[in-house]
């Protein structure tokens, strides 16, 4: 099943930031419940925008979010100290967002991850910057998956992010991501792939149609998770319809349910 990591509880969004500053738990809980009702399978929680307040904001958010949902959370922070606290607070096995091959980040994250029971998003980023070719992405995926396996992570708990880059700056970026996903899902059998889907449409108008069609094309390649907005009905309809077309929906039941609920419309 395709996994939707709901991206909305992030303090870089103005309304969320305001709610965190005012400690307005009702706003956050309402948003989380809407995400769950719309089909989110993970709720990402990022408290990074208020510099110097991340730990206390994260602590508050986790408490408030878990009162509203039993969905697993995606703990989104680069700071192992914040993650350690967050990890101790969650009721369900969480996902951690994220580790990369950038030396400082890698060395800070590995001691935290060792021995933990969690899923992990692994970015195909290293100290030389954003990947420029399919081989760059696949080689980085292999290194980071190898490192994680060496400390006991199972492939099924690793979500490789190929780093989707905008079409607006380079017409090859779409195919690069699609080819990379296919190679990762074949050559590293058992891992998942995920990523920030909407990066693809940065710098172009009518972004939603780009995101929708790109998601369907990526899913064909094996892309089985995305960090996205579950309240965007049309893209959620693409998730269900494409999953059905891939043969992941017995007797098309989820598709039909979506149609009857009015969330999938032609």
């Amino acid at each position: 099943m395709f996994e939707v990591i709901g991206e909305r509880i992030n303090t870089t969004f103005k309304k969320v930031k305001a709610a965190v500053i005012d400690r307005d738990g009702a706003y956050i809980q309402d948003d989380v419940q809407k995400q769950e009702a719309s089909g989110a399978t993970y709720i990402d929680v990022n408290a990074g925008a208020r510099i110097g307040h991340e730990k206390e904001d994260m602590e508050w958010l986790l408490k408030v979010v878990q009162e509203a949902t039993t969905l697993p959370l995606c703990l989104d922070s680069p700071d192992p100290e914040v993650l350690e606290m967050a990890y101790s607070m969650v009721n369900t096995t969480p996902m951690v967002n994220s580790i990369s091959l950038e030396k400082d980040r890698f060395e800070a994250m590995m001691p935290f991850l060792k021995g933990k029971e969690c899923k992990i998003i692994a970015l195909c980023m290293d100290d030389s910057g954003m990947p420029k070719t399919v081989d760059d992405i696949v080689n980085r995926a292999k290194s980071i998956v190898g490192e994680l396996e060496a400390i006991g992570f199972k492939r099924q708990n690793i979500y490789v992010d190929p780093l989707i880059q905008p079409m607006s700056v380079d017409g090859n970026n779409g195919m690069m991501a699609m080819d990379a996903v296919k190679a990762i899902m074949t050559e590293l059998e058992g891992v998942h792939t995920t990523g920030g889907l909407s990066n693809i449409s940065y710098g172009l108008p009518q972004r939603k149609i780009i995101n929708r069609i790109f998601l369907a094309m990526m899913m064909k390649q094996g892309f089985d998770s995305a960090i996205m907005d579950p309240l965007d009905n049309e893209i959620m309809a693409v998730v269900k319809t494409a999953d059905m077309l891939k043969g992941n929906d017995n007797f098309c039941m989820n598709f039909l349910k979506g149609v009857r609920a009015g969330t999938i419309k032609a």
Binding site: S168, Y202, G203, L204, P205
Partner: peptide, 10 residues
């Protein structure tokens, strides 16, 4: 002003 987009600027 949002009338032109990145590919056109490039």
């Amino acid at each position: 002003s949002g009338e032109m987009f990145i590919p056109e600027v490039l």
